[in-house]
C-alpha cells in the first residue's frame, strides 16, 4: 500500500490544469463516486468543522448559543475529572494489547486445526456480533455482586472472601469494563488475522521444515512477515474503535462512581446527553481526537520501524 510521491503528484495533477477535459473523459466515474463524496463531506467533515466552531461557544442542546472563546477548553483542562478520565482511557485502551495477543493466538491455533473449523469460528463470533449494550447487560448480571452467578461460585469455592462491589469502586470497575471489552472485541483481530493466515502458501512452511526450521523460527521468519499488514490494519482500527466504544462500559458502570470509569467517550456522552452542553462535549471530542491520532500515528510509526528492521534480516 506504499505510495510514492510521484504517484500522488500524478493523481492530483490530473485535474489541475485540464479539469474540464478530465471531467469530460471521466464523467461516468465521477458520477459513480459523487454520492460517496457528498456523504463524506456532508456527514463527516462538515459536522466536524461545525463542531470545532461549537466548541468556542456555550452551546446548549436547545436554545441560544453564546460565544465564550476558549472558556470550554480552559474549564476542561482545569477540571480534575478530565485527568481521571484520561487515566481511565489509557487503562481502557490497554485492551488493544490483549485483543492482539488473544486474536493472534486464536488465529494461529485455528489454522492448525482441520476439524470443526467453521463451527469454532462461529462460536468465536457470538459475543462480537451482538450489540455491545447486550453483552454489557449480560456481564452486568454475570458479575453482579449480589445476584450474579460468577461471584457466587467464586465465594462458594472460597476463591473470593466476599463479593466485590466493582460498580462502586472505580479502581476495580475500570479493569472490569476493560476486560469485558477485550472479551467482546478480540474476535475482530482474529477475523482479520485468520483471513490473512489462510492465504499464506503451505510451500513456505514445507521449505522451512526441509531446512530444519523450528516452529518458533517458522513463526518469526514466515508467519509474522506475512501477517505484517494484517496486524497493522487490525490494530489501527482497534485502537480507534476501542476508544470510541461507549455503550458497553456505560451500561456496566454508568461512568461512575463519580467520573472514575468515565473514559473520554463516556465523558463526551454525558456532556451531550445528560448535561446537554454541546460546546463542552466537542472540546472533550477534540481531546479524544488528538489522543486517537497520537496513539494511531505512534503505533504505525513504531510498527513500521520494528518490522522494517526485521524485514531486512529475513
Amino acid at each position: 500500500m506504499s505510495t510514492t510521491t510521484a504517484e500522488w503528484l500524478q493523481d492530483v495533477s490530473g485535474w489541475i490544469g485540464n479539469g474540464r477535459e478530465v471531467l469530460r473523459e471521466y464523467w461516468f466515474e465521477y458520477l459513480l463516486f459523487v454520492p460517496t463524496l457528498v456523504f463524506l463531506l456532508a456527514l463527516v467533515w462538515g459536522p466536524f468543522v461545525r463542531g470545532v466552531w461549537m466548541s468556542f461557544h456555550d452551546w446548549p442542546l436547545f436554545g441560544e448559543s453564546t460565544w465564550v472563546g476558549l472558556d470550554n477548553y480552559a474549564y476542561l483542562f482545569g477540571w480534575d475529572a478530565l485527568y481521571t478520565s484520561i487515566r481511565a482511557t489509557i487503562i481502557f485502551s490497554l485492551q488493544t494489547v490483549l485483543q492482539l495477543v488473544v486474536g493472534l493466538g486464536a488465529a494461529l491455533a485455528l489454522t492448525r486445526i482441520s476439524s470443526f473449523r467453521d463451527f469454532i469460528n462461529g462460536i468465536y463470533l457470538i459475543g462480537f456480533t451482538m450489540p455491545p449494550v447486550v453483552t454489557g447487560t449480560m456481564w452486568y448480571f454475570l458479575l453482579h455482586p449480589q445476584f450474579g452467578p460468577i461471584q457466587q461460585y467464586l465465594t462458594d469455592l472460597g476463591l473470593l472472601g466476599s463479593p466485590v462491589f466493582w460498580r462502586s469502586s472505580g479502581d476495580i470497575g475500570i479493569w472490569v469494563i476493560t476486560l469485558v471489552s477485550a472479551w467482546t472485541f478480540w474476535p475482530f483481530v482474529f477475523l482479520v488475522l485468520f483471513a490473512s493466515l489462510t492465504n499464506i502458501p503451505d510451500e513456505h512452511y514445507e521449505t522451512a521444515r526441509v531446512y530444519g526450521a523450528s516452529r518458533i523460527q517458522q513463526f518469526i521468519r514466515i508467519t509474522l512477515p506475512q501477517l505484517k499488514s494484517a496486524i497493522l490494519v487490525a490494530i489501527s482500527i482497534r485502537i480507534v474503535w476501542n476508544l470510541v466504544k461507549v455503550s458497553q462500559p456505560l451500561q456496566m458502570t454508568g461512568g461512575g462512581p463519580g467520573y472514575e470509569t468515565s473514559i473520554l467517550a463516556i465523558l463526551l456522552y454525558r456532556f451531550t446527553k445528560e448535561q446537554r452542553e454541546l460546546g463542552l462535549s466537542f472540546s472533550v471530542g477534540v481531546v479524544l481526537f488528538v489522543i486517537t491520532l497520537v496513539f494511531t500515528v505512534l503505533f504505525i510509526r513504531e510498527f513500521e520501524r520494528a518490522t522494517g528492521e526485521g524485514g531486512e534480516t529475513a
Partner: peptide, 10 residues
C-alpha cells in the same frame, strides 16, 4: 479510522 463519537455534538 475516524473516531465518529466526536461528531455527536454537531
Amino acid at each position: 479510522l475516524f473516531p465518529y463519537i466526536v461528531l455527536v455534538a454537531p
